[in-house]
Design a binder for these strands. Structure first.
Length: 427
DNA sequence: TCTGGGGTCCTAGGACCC
DNA sequence: TCTGGGGTCCTAGGACCC
């Protein structure tokens, strides 16, 4: 059996964990740049705050009910996430089979738990996580990952009744659940497939599970569709991935806090994003063989990104893969100069590191120069300082000192759990 | 006036090779 | 003038996820 443990309103729960005064109160968390609502507590949802809607649109309801609002505080969420996942690993013990799927979700292989104990075991997981971390979770259990996700959704739909736990093992239970679930609520069915399916008259997960595999192969993205159908029928077709797999691409992209018209500011922003991306790169001991940059002007659709149109993005292959910030900045700033058009207003920029390979300089390669080794030590020192002190205590001059373009984040909570000076005091 | 950011996997089709 | 078949690698683009 497969379980998925999913934190309830994760970002909101993190904010409330250190603010007892907000327990049972409506809370929302905003995306970067304070753009839209990305997390809302049950209380906020019941007041009518929509998910993923722009902040300014939700403003009337928020003001009317005095809903608490936070900018995203990724240091806090990252740390809380780590605590939740460690709790799950501890619970599973030696033969720990935990796959961290996202910041607030993990799959667990429960094959070693007898069927009739799954309900109790799920409750034990839930209670322990809440007690150790202060984060409330929902647990879905079923024969496959896709069905576990479905179970979890049902658990969350009626928390009073389910106690945030749904275990689906019997054939009848599974059929009922499939009949109650719409295709567009399934894991693996997005907007495009949902529209197609509904057009064909397939509306419930149950109906979809009864379609032939060949049909799925032709109409739902080949092997992907076949796996989905099999999973719905209870045949595990998506395996557990326990080891942390190195990323194949690393991106850092941001909206600016205000439109930017000055080349130097765009350069600064891109240099800053490269610095951030290079940190991620070094954290997984990789080096990048290619750098891409994109800038988005004010008139362009805000969903436009680096994939569309050569006018806004550019790509360069490096003479050799590197993890050194200054080399990556040099390449990226060169691209900015080619892309930038005087007189245009820009609202967003981003960088992408790809063609990632293991960082050879770490091995003390016979052919790498002494200077490269020195640089590597410098990077290591910078990463350590920036991690333990304030952000960007040490940085490259090209990333700028004033950062007028920096995103808005006016409502961020203190970093309760990762900064000494922000620690809560208990008197 | 104000709408996020960061990823993955798969397939089709072109270039190239023998 | 006629012009095969099979393989690999790469890239763009579509779909999905949280």
């Amino acid at each position: 059996m497969n379980a998925i443990v999913d934190c309830n309103s994760f970002y909101c729960s993190c904010e409330r964990a250190f603010r007892p005064d907000l327990w049972n109160k409506p809370v929302v968390v905003l995306s970067n740049n304070d753009g839209c609502i990305v997390s809302r507590s049950d209380e906020a949802r019941l007041l009518g705050v929509g998910m993923a809607i722009p902040y300014f649109q939700a403003r009337p309801i928020i003001d009317k009910h005095g809903i608490s609002v936070f900018s995203s505080n990724y240091h806090l969420y990252g740390d809380m996430s780590w605590r939740v996942m460690e709790t799950l690993r501890t619970l599973m013990g030696e033969a720990s089979k935990v796959e961290v799927y996202s910041v607030d979700e993990a799959f667990m292989d429960l094959d070693h738990i007898p069927i009739h104990e799954l309900e109790d075991y799920s409750r034990h997981i839930k209670q322990t996580v809440e007690q150790w971390t202060g984060i409330s979770v929902s647990v879905g259990v079923a024969p496959t990952k896709t069905l576990a996700k479905m179970a979890n959704r049902l658990a969350k739909k009626n928390k009073q009744l389910s106690g945030c736990i749904k275990v689906l093992t019997g054939e009848d239970e599974l059929r009922t659940a499939l009949q109650q679930t719409r295709v567009d609520d399934l894991w693996g069915v997005g907007r495009a497939y949902a529209a197609k399916l509904i057009n064909w008259g397939i509306t419930s997960a149950w109906e979809l599970s009864n379609m032939p595999e060949e049909w799925a192969h032709t109409n739902m993205g080949g092997i992907v569709g076949v796996r989905l159908i099999r999973e719905l029928r209870g045949l595990p077709s998506i395996g557990m991935e326990e080891e942390l797999i190195d990323k194949k691409m690393i991106a850092t992209t941001r909206m600016f806090g205000r439109p930017v018209t000055d080349l130097h500011e765009v350069r600064e922003a891109v240099a800053t994003y490269i610095s951030r991306a290079a940190e991620k790169l070094r954290r997984q001991h990789s080096a990048a063989g290619a750098v891409s940059v994109f800038i988005v002007s004010k008139e362009q659709d805000h969903h436009t990104d680096f994939r569309r149109g050569a006018t806004i993005s550019n790509y360069t292959t490096l003479p050799r893969a590197t993890s050194l910030t200054h080399e990556l900045i040099k390449a990226a700033v060169g691209l900015v100069d080619r892309l930038f058009e005087q007189g245009k207003e820009y609202k967003k920029a981003g960088v992408m590191l790809s063609s990632l390979v293991p960082d050879a300089s770490i091995q003390g390669n016979l052919f790498s120069s002494h200077a490269a080794g020195e640089h590597r030590h410098l990077m290591h020192a910078i990463d350590n300082i920036n991690f333990s002190m304030r952000d960007d205590s040490v940085k490259f001059g090209s990333s700028g000192m004033n950062k007028h373009w920096k995103m808005r984040q006016e409502l961020r909570s203190p970093r309760f759990s990762t900064r000494w000076e922000d620690l809560r005091e208990v008197k």
